[in-house]
């Protein structure tokens, strides 16, 4: 069963068409990465799913229920972490979470709240006024708030923005754990592709109000093109000699040669170059599969638009 079905969704602000027939299908229990450049319509789409914004045309079903009709029931099963949010600075974290537990009508005692705070790494700061929290701490408390009602669908907008690498890793682990243990469906919108690669099983790329790509992340990798930079031992090396059916020469600067690998795994390409006696000292990946997919989808659209 799909957790979210979005069919031909249209939304415009005056004459500005933000969503132009976007369709999306998110399966129950999956972590779905929503990607797209700034202004692609991601935030609008998420706000519509959350019921914070009306739409002009189309259909949204969440857990089989029409969004508009079952708004109240659905809002108890959904929670979200918006990109921009603030806390009530005069409160302490326990008080803040208790407020939202009460607003959701969930029976949440202090033990459960302390557990949530420990999960997001804020237990040592539970008595500190949240107004004194750093940006990263606020993000963690926001995430704890988003988990207060044990949501079946969790919508996260840039959840790791402002977090240090350790904090990011902890949030990743928390989300993966949540998804694994509770089967929580998560929609993750971010510009950090590393987050998507670590967390998401499927992705959708939104561009100019339409979903231009939707698919499994692992399947993409097989079809993907990679960009690598090789350092060769010999500066007089003839770069075109490395060109094969799967390896395309792009440019050379002194000993550094940039190539595109298409249709085979990078290690196989390197193996084939070494077999052809190309003196490779080191190889550096310039673009991961997802980054390349993202660029190819958004750039293709841009080129189509220009032409």
């Amino acid at each position: 069963m799909n957790a979210v079905n979005i069919i031909d969704l249209k939304k415009s602000y005056g004459s500005n068409l933000v969503l132009d027939g976007a369709s999306m299908h998110i399966k129950e229990g999956e972590i779905y990465g929503l990607l797209g450049p700034n202004g692609a319509g991601k935030s609008t789409l998420m706000r519509i799913i959350l019921g914070l914004m009306s739409y002009d045309d189309g259909k949204i079903e969440i857990f089989g229920l029409e969004r508009k009709i079952a708004a109240k029931k659905l809002s108890r099963q959904i929670n979200a972490l918006p990109e921009f949010f603030e806390l009530y600075g005069w409160m302490q974290s326990i008080e803040y979470l208790q407020l939202f537990a009460d607003l959701y009508g969930v029976n949440c005692n202090e033990t459960r709240i302390r557990k949530l705070l420990a999960e997001v790494g804020l237990d040592p700061f539970e008595r500190k006024a949240v107004g004194d929290y750093s940006q990263g701490m606020k993000k963690r408390l926001g995430l704890a708030r988003a988990l207060i009602n044990d949501p079946k669908l969790l919508i996260l907008d840039e959840p790791t923005n402002g977090l240090d690498p350790n904090g990011r890793r902890e949030i990743h682990d928390l989300l993966l754990d949540l998804n694994r243990k509770n089967g929580t469906t998560i929609i993750l919108s971010t510009h950090i592709l590393d987050d998507v690669e670590r967390l998401c099983s499927r992705i959708g790329i939104l561009y100019n109000g339409k979903l231009r790509y939707e698919g499994m992340l692992l399947q993409n990798e097989k079809k993907q093109r990679y960009r690598y930079r090789f350092e060769v031992a010999d500066a007089t090396f003839e770069p075109t000699s490395c060109t094969t059916d799967h390896i395309r020469f792009i440019r050379q600067e002194d000993r550094w040669v940039e190539c595109e690998i298409d249709g085979i795994a990078p290690y196989k390409a390197i193996q084939s170059l070494l077999e052809h006696d190309i003196p490779i000292n080191q190889a550096i990946s310039l673009a991961g599969s997802l980054e390349y997919l993202y660029f190819s989808v958004t750039q293709e659209e841009k080129m189509e638009k220009i032409s």
């Binding site: 959350l50 914070l52 109240k72 809002s75 108890r76 959904i78 929670n79 979200a80 918006p82 921009f84 949010f85 603030e86 806390l87 009530y88 939202f100 607003l103 959701y104 009508g105 926001g142 708030r145």
Partner: peptide
């Protein structure tokens, strides 16, 4: 103050 949206996400 960016506090309204978190209230509106609730029921």
């Amino acid at each position: 103050r960016y506090t309204l949206e978190t209230l509106l996400i609730t029921p």
